[in-house]
Simulated scan of single mutants.
Amino acid sequence: MQRETRRSNKERTEATRAALIEAARRLFVERGYAETATPDIVAAAGVTRGALYHHFADKQALFRAVVEQEAATIAVEIERRAPATLSAAEALLAGGDAYLDAMREPGRTRLLLLDGPAVLGREEMDAIDERHGNRTLREGLVAAMRRRDISNVPVDALTVLVGAAFDRAALAIDRGGDRDAFRLAMRALIEGLLDGGTRAHDGDG
């Protein structure tokens, strides 16, 4: 009986945390971070103010949890769309398409690319990216380099540059840019890297 009670308490705790993150996400997207007050989040989540501060030190900590969850969701989708059964080159292309598709979720671009850096700072957002989206991109680039599909260049620098290009594309699409045009442009960018690897490999002979 005691074990069941502990399990039930853990489930309630997790449910409360999830409700807070879900309510906060909705309000941060609708109103923006600055215009969202913690009493509004508590009311939307249907929990007490004490419950909020049991899980999160302050509003910024709750925002950080929202951003981390969004970034993790994108990474999962990229990995789903670029499984190990694909070649390194195919995985890079599929992963890029998956990122742009995942960023179409309403509010996600604002949370990750606009409010995130403004609220948490560039350094902390970079750390979040390193755990999620940039991690999947780096792994894809490393795999392609190992297969010599891409020329062997400093992978950290390449990850930053390619990741920034994808973020700019996502921002442009969110502002009404032609999604297909940016998708084709990003695929051309990746294919250009792959072509560079092919030329380097041919030169070895």
Rank of each mutant, 00 (worst) to 15 (best):
P39R: 01
Q2Y: 09
D149N: 08
L189M: 14
G177L: 01
A44I: 05
Q60A: 11
A23Q: 02
T13N: 10
N134W: 12
D97S: 05
E70H: 02
E68K: 10
A188E: 07
A98H: 06
E30N: 08
I78Q: 02
M186R: 10
A102C: 14
A75F: 00
L100I: 04
R49G: 15
R199H: 10
E124Y: 03
L27N: 02
V160E: 06
Q2L: 04
E79I: 00
L161K: 10
T13I: 04
D195G: 12
I128T: 11
V47Y: 12
A165R: 11
T198S: 12
R25W: 07
L184K: 01
M103Y: 11
R31N: 11
A165Y: 04
R168M: 06
D178F: 01
V155P: 11
T73R: 07
Q60M: 06
E30L: 05
K10I: 03
F182G: 00
G196M: 08
R148H: 15
E30H: 10
V162Q: 09
A144S: 14
P83S: 01
G133I: 09
L171K: 01
E30M: 10
E191H: 06
R199S: 02
R146G: 15
V76E: 05
S87Q: 08
R12I: 06
R146L: 13
A57R: 12
A172C: 00
M125V: 15
R147S: 14
H55E: 12
G32K: 05
A127P: 15
R25L: 03
M103R: 10
A172H: 02
V47D: 06
G177R: 01
A43F: 05
R104I: 09
